[in-house]
Design a protein around this nucleic acid. Structure first.
Lengths: 252, 252
DNA sequence: CGGTACATTGAGAAATTTCAAAGTTGGTGG
DNA sequence: CCACCAACTTTGAAATTTCTCAATGTACCG
């Protein structure tokens, strides 16, 4: 009953049709203005000659497998994805959650192959920008380079925070930390409505991110629900007592 | 000799005299050829105009405190240091170990203040290169920029590996992983002699790195010793059964 | 309907922490 | 050279957290 992810798994359920058109291009991308895509393509549209490969993947499928040569810099256009490492014993560690409009990893300008894999959490639309194009742009445009360096720094900061959580915090604190982080981002994206925001991760994925078993993650989530703090499930989080959630996250 | 003493902690033991001269400059630095310092200053010594501030700090003292504005890019010239986060409950997480010749954090070109602190493990000689100088060099020299980007990628990879260890591995595996990593580096630096290499971290520091308590770290180290795998203590590691150590590190 | 992935619950086992006390070590000052 | 001191290490016993195993319940999709 283990969540079969790696190399040779076949989907037990046929992938659903993806929402929206798989042919959607960057011109219409909702996130273009706010992130790296926007910075790369800039205001001047004479840059649109850059070939960007768009693809889609159904929920639970792999977008990238550890060790394979990558076609370029990977950006998630639509849907949620996770970057993770699969261990031989069947367990895995999710390293980061990638939201729409985000780069999967800013280190991808200096490397073509990675030790991590990338899995779609929901149905996902994504694209590759060829390495060479990005390199050239970064070389030519110092503002863009700066932007990229800052992205790398942000990722580094996230990794550091995650290290502290995994090394020093209890199960409850780690899960609260994840929820608060996602809540904050939902707020910034304007996706928080009636104290509720979209959260498509399964309990197994929450467990893989927080370094727990899915059984224990379930128990922690139950206790959060029972204690009137928040209700996680069915693809959404309902925040009931935000102050208390924040207190749990960093009570020590 | 005047030593950097921390604002709020008074050493209970008087700092020892540091080995070598605190005035040592980059021209004589042993590591100059092999790392970023070398790349920055290059073959042409007309760059030596760059003002580099050298300092020393005694073991167990802080080199940098979280939140303070930093004077520049921090490089450890001599001795061991750790990058860590201090929690209000007294526990802390060590994020990385910084060896002689290494940058404390490659993200320091885009930020002047950090969420982590830096502590000297041994007596340490270090230097700051002003941010502006590094920025200019990176802008002007694309080889150097490439070098820097790779450093950032390496740090990122280390963080990912550490996340997997903290999230998914047992106490024994984490400690074995630390020892194997340090063994490998010692080997590359030519510091491995008679299966023994310098390792000045205390059990408390090992515990802070691996997310354990010092008591448990002690028990794991004892069992490694008892089982004839390796002997950690007195500032050195003696490797007895390297194959077995490797097996423990990644037995699952 | 029937199947599959996902979520929940209970009970016992294992890993790790906590608390407390005693043993070691190395540097310092007398 | 000795005695002291502070930091560090070791050990035991009990408490706590988290995991494992196993069974049952639930929601969604074709």
């Amino acid at each position: 009953m283990l969540l079969e992810v790696e190399p040779f798994s076949v989907p037990t359920r046929a992938p659903r049709a993806l929402p929206g058109s798989a042919q959607s291009s960057c011109e219409t991308c909702y996130f273009r203005k706010s992130n790296f895509c926007g910075a790369l393509f800039g205001g001047s549209d004479d840059r649109d000659a850059i070939k960007v490969k768009h693809r889609t993947t159904a929920a639970r499928q792999n977008i990238y497998r550890a060790g394979e040569p990558s076609e370029g810099v990977l950006i998630i256009c639509e849907g949620w994805a996770v970057r993770y490492v699969q261990l031989p014993n069947g367990r895995r560690q999710i390293l980061s959650v990638v939201l729409p409009g985000e780069l999967v990893s800013a280190t991808s300008i200096v490397e073509r192959q990675f030790a991590f894999s990338v899995q779609a959490v929901t149905d996902v639309r994504y694209c590759y920008i060829p390495f060479a194009e990005v390199r050239e742009e970064l070389q030519a445009n110092s503002t863009l380079l700066d932007f990229w360096l800052k992205l790398m720094a942000v990722e580094h900061r996230h990794a550091d925070k995650q290290l502290v959580d995994l090394g020093q915090r209890t199960a409850q604190e780690r899960i609260a930390a994840l929820l608060v982080a996602m809540l904050t981002q939902a707020e910034q994206r304007g996706e928080l409505q009636d104290d509720e925001f979209p959260f498509p991760m399964s309990q197994q994925q929450i467990a893989d991110f927080t370094g727990l078993t899915s059984v224990h993650a379930c128990r922690v989530l139950s206790s959060l629900r029972k204690n009137g703090i928040c209700d996680v499930g069915h693809g959404v989080v309902k925040i009931v007592d935000r102050a208390e959630l924040g207190r749990i996250e960093s009570q020590r």
